[in-house]
Design a protein around this nucleic acid. Structure first.
Lengths: 339, 339
DNA sequence: ATTGACTTCTAAATCGATTTAGAATATGAT
DNA sequence: ATCATATTCTAAATCGATTTAGAAGTCAAT
């Protein structure tokens, strides 16, 4: 049975408010009473009821993240664990919990509305925005604090942390162009996610900036996973004039491509170059190791949490919009263009 | 501003309790009043305050998981995302949220105590038990509902879901023995985690059951990550009489070993066989693909959540202790012993 | 007309804290 | 002795729901 203020009050023979104020170090409590109350509270292992406090203060000390069930993001986003860790670390340091819930595979808006209306949370983290994102619209409309991981198409006047996917892929293309590659293939994720769209934009930009020929047939829209990367690579490599390098929108796709290339007897990094995006733990340990773009996933999670907590506390947010430029990590999967 | 019962009461000109009972479909409310109240509630977008309900009912509709900061489990456990998804899915279906918090890197018990005393949660999920696990002791002592993912050494009289790591590694050893391997190396995780200990036990058991010679020098305790797997493999493969097969306690270690073997010019699956454990997404896509043990991570998360919710609701739990036997997935990294 | 039985509602208490307003006591000044 | 002032406490209201007990009204039966 948990200890309440009342229990302490009975033990010290004072009223509940007195105990409350003694614990709060208020001036109108005599030093002796204060000391006595605090001693007893410690002895009894008192901890205020979070629920009662929530009700009184209208704060839940909880921030929410609703796992999207559209696109199996959770599986295909190797980023997620690290990001979550970053969020939890920052939140924990401020005494705030992260509530993770599901949208029941049905109505995303309903899931958000329920959380909002039942006042379960102080604010939301919106994972992996879509170009048109009803979650953002909803949260804005209800004036609920939130921070998005990603931007949207259109009005981006809200707090977000995002990767610079365009600059990332652009760096990969520049790298390949510098290695002499002229004919580049691109394996894209479905572009309803903003990040996928930005990454794709980076490809277009890079091709143009390096004066490479653009061939729409070399751009394939896959899903998020390896098998799809493999299939896409199959299509690219069976063309009569296949690309000498394949830029992939993420590491999993790149691993699929790697696999396909190898099973055709190609030596990756020599016969064909392949790049990824995300620098998942395994990128370094594939054979050959994968040239890719590194992102500080955990730090980004921390940034999102930090901004959100400031919003919730109505503290000023110095940098409400942060775009992180990924860094190119050159490994063995990319090499000079074959002559 | 969220809608409260009071708001509805004012709108329909009835008292708050009447509204409450009308929404609860109580018998002592006239059908007309009931209909009217429910209509107005719907119109106004009423949702009961979770906080107020929590206070009144002493239930939070939240289950908790505290991320351990000992051993960077979160990074090294590729299992985690899928497991979490399973938990959230089952919980969401029952209208329960998952609260993820951190232990602030300091006192694990303090983190649990705080959650318990402040009555923030209905129950706990204990991730990845240790052989001596103070979390379990604490939760038992305080009689708080919990389900562990993993067992402990000693009294296991509590609800848990666990993998059968012993049977898993045993299956790998049997498989290698059947391929003619006699000299097996084992790369272990630190064995303070119960799962690591069980996996190691499987190795001992397999070696014995197959009448293989046991050489302590062939067992290396690594940490959880690839680089460590690589270093361990280096030691094993530089022995004057190296093992012909290396059993690894997890896939990441196996990938490290794979890498080391390959950089020595060995063909994995022919010159040396390597097996892993977990069947992470990438096990299928390495080159050669990895023989490993598959675990239904998401389902296991679901099972844990299911049992916990039953405990919380004081419903009978048919199967309070579940041990899942992983399935051996034979791929290219294991082959006949070289002659 | 009184009683009893129903029906339908409201008043008040409760969950566990905080906060505002005001009471009781002690102290000092005149 | 009286009044003002300070000190230290308590009573009561509040947050938003539920629940118990009981009030008010209707109707039929005696």
């Amino acid at each position: 049975m948990p200890v309440t203020l009342k229990d302490i009050a009975e033990r010290v023979g004072k009223s509940v408010p007195t105990v409350s104020r003694a614990l709060g170090n208020f001036e109108d409590i005599s030093p002796e009473t204060r000391a006595e109350v605090q001693r007893v509270a410690r002895e009894m292992g008192y901890e205020p009821s979070a629920t009662a406090l929530n009700l009184k203060t209208r704060r839940t000390n909880t921030i929410s993240l609703i796992l999207p069930s559209y696109a199996q993001l959770r599986f295909s986003d190797p980023f997620f664990s690290a990001f979550l860790t970053g969020v939890v670390e920052i939140a924990a340091a401020r005494g705030v919990d992260l509530s993770v819930s599901g949208d029941l595979g049905a109505d995303v808006e309903a899931a958000y509305l329920k959380q909002i209306r039942s006042r379960r949370t102080d604010g939301f983290i919106v994972m992996r925005t879509q170009r048109q994102d009803s979650r953002i619209d909803l949260l804005r409309k209800h004036d609920v604090p939130f921070v998005a991981f990603g931007r949207v198409e259109g009005d981006n006047n809200f707090c977000y942390v995002d990767e610079d996917g365009t600059a990332g892929i652009r760096a990969a293309v520049d790298h390949l162009a510098a290695l002499g590659h002229r004919r580049l293939g691109y394996i894209s994720e479905p572009t309803h996610l903003t990040k996928s769209y930005h990454r794709y934009a980076g490809f277009r930009e890079g091709v143009e900036a390096n004066n490479l020929p653009y061939d729409p047939a070399l751009v394939i829209e896959a899903n998020f996973r390896q098998d799809s990367g493999r299939q896409s690579a199959l299509r690219l490599l069976s063309m009569e004039k296949p690309p000498t390098a394949i830029v992939c929108a993420n590491d999993l796709l790149a691993l699929g491509a790697l696999n396909e290339a190898q099973s055709r007897g190609l030596v990756v990094g020599r016969d064909v170059s392949i790049t990824g995006f995300d620098d998942i733990l395994l990128a370094e340990y594939t054979h050959p190791s994968l040239t890719t773009l590194h992102q500080p996933a955990q730090e980004m999670g921390g940034m999102v949490a930090d901004i959100l907590l400031k919003l919730v506390n109505k503290e000023p947010v110095e940098e409400p919009q942060i775009i992180i430029r990924p860094t190119l990590v050159v490994r063995e999967s990319s090499g000079p263009a074959p002559t």
